[in-house]
């Protein structure tokens, strides 16, 4: 799932400074699941902005609407009526949704209400962890099902580096919270699987071109001729 976090509200207030009437657009996909951009957060942000602007003597009118997915044009069509009523849109969808909703309504400025963070798993309520970088050339077969790109701070293909200590990555605190060393995790898993010999196989350099955008994915067998 895509994981995003709310943008600091002072940034959003700055973006909205010129406007008197805006739409906050939520998404029922990943950002609802990661508790950042569903109907509830739309309501909270709207209330916060209304109060902030009232306080500054510059009241703002805010419409609230949440639809199934902002990364699909058909759902974005449902915002039509409200977009017609406002000067600007704040989207709480991930970066994909924000852009895609913006493309649908190119004459209305759209602003991000979130920072899109990662592809992660929801460990428990209120905690998310990165698992994949979308590198386009998966090596999980060689690494016991644990991603060295996303989970090793240096994305080493042949780790660990010399900084791995007691299972922790050398980039851990005070830089970030304790990070498990990705290559220790790989070693432990391979050893549990009886595949430790894979540790001594050299993984050749990846084709990083596949990780570089702009990327497009087309399946000729599926594309429709709409002419």
């Amino acid at each position: 799932m895509i994981v995003a976090e709310g943008k600091p509200v002072e940034k959003i207030l700055e973006m909205l400074a010129p406007y008197k009437k805006v739409l906050i657009a939520g998404c029922r996909g990943c950002v609802t699941v990661c508790l950042t951009g569903g109907e509830k957060e739309v309501g909270i942000l709207a209330s916060q902005i209304r109060m902030a602007r009232s306080k500054d003597g510059n009241p703002i009118e805010i419409l609230e609407q949440t639809e199934e997915r902002q990364c699909d044009a058909e759902y974005n069509a449902k915002f039509l009526e409200n977009v017609g009523k406002v000067d600007a849109i704040v989207s709480l969808a991930c970066g994909i949704g924000i852009q895609y909703l913006g493309e649908k309504y190119p004459l209305t400025p759209i602003y991000p209400g979130v920072n899109t963070l990662m592809l992660g798993a929801n460990i428990d309520v209120g905690r998310w962890e990165e698992r994949c970088f979308a590198c386009g050339d998966c090596v999980l077969d060689k690494t016991g099902g644990i991603c060295p790109i996303a989970r090793c701070s240096k994305s080493l293909l042949n780790g660990p580096c010399g900084g791995s200590q007691f299972g922790k990555c050398e980039v851990s605190a005070p830089v970030k919270e304790d990070i498990p060393c990705g290559w220790q995790l790989i070693y432990d898993r391979l050893s549990a699987l009886g595949q430790l010999d894979k540790m001594s196989e050299i993984i050749p350099a990846k084709n990083w071109l596949r990780a570089k955008g702009p990327r497009t994915y087309v399946r000729e067998d599926l594309t429709l001729d709409r002419s």
């Binding site: 600091p8 509200v9 002072e10 207030l13 916060q48 109060m51 902030a52 306080k55």
Partner: peptide
């Protein structure tokens, strides 16, 4: 926190 962020 939400109130503090906007000085309420």
């Amino acid at each position: 926190q939400i109130l503090n962020q906007v000085g309420l």
